[in-house]
Amino acid sequence: MNDTSLSLDNLAAGLGDPVHDSQAIFRVLLDTLSRPGTLGRIQPVLDADGPLAHIPCSAFAALLTLADYATPVWIQQHDDALAATVRFHTGAPIAQHANEAAFAYIHEAADIPAADTFALGEPETPDRSTTLLIRVDALEGGRPLTLSGPGIESSVTIAPRGIPDAFWHARAELAPAFPCGIDCYLVCGAELMGIPRTTLVEMN
Results as ranks from 00 to 15, higher is better:
11 L>E: 04
64 L>T: 05
109 A>R: 07
48 A>Y: 03
108 E>Y: 08
98 A>C: 11
54 H>Q: 14
188 C>G: 01
57 C>H: 04
201 V>T: 05
180 C>G: 04
17 D>H: 14
122 E>D: 10
122 E>P: 04
44 P>C: 04
60 F>E: 01
108 E>P: 05
31 D>P: 06
168 W>N: 07
71 T>W: 06
8 L>S: 12
144 P>F: 13
141 G>Y: 13
155 S>H: 15
134 I>S: 00
200 L>Y: 01
129 S>Q: 10
88 F>S: 08
7 S>F: 05
204 N>V: 11
114 A>V: 06
160 P>F: 13
177 A>R: 14
47 D>A: 12
45 V>L: 02
130 T>F: 00
185 Y>F: 15
194 G>K: 11
180 C>Y: 03
80 D>M: 11
73 V>K: 00
10 N>E: 12
182 I>L: 12
147 L>T: 08
106 I>R: 00
156 V>K: 15
72 P>A: 11
101 A>R: 07
200 L>W: 02
81 A>V: 07
34 S>E: 05
33 L>Q: 14
122 E>T: 15
42 I>K: 03
120 L>H: 09
2 N>I: 15
94 I>Y: 02
73 V>I: 14
87 R>K: 08
29 L>G: 06
62 A>P: 03
164 P>N: 11
115 A>R: 07
80 D>A: 15
25 I>M: 02
85 T>P: 01
75 I>A: 00
158 I>N: 07
183 D>Y: 04
2 N>Y: 10
192 L>G: 02
59 A>S: 12
64 L>Q: 04
71 T>Q: 13
183 D>R: 08
109 A>M: 09
104 A>D: 00
78 H>E: 15
102 A>M: 04
138 A>H: 13
177 A>T: 10
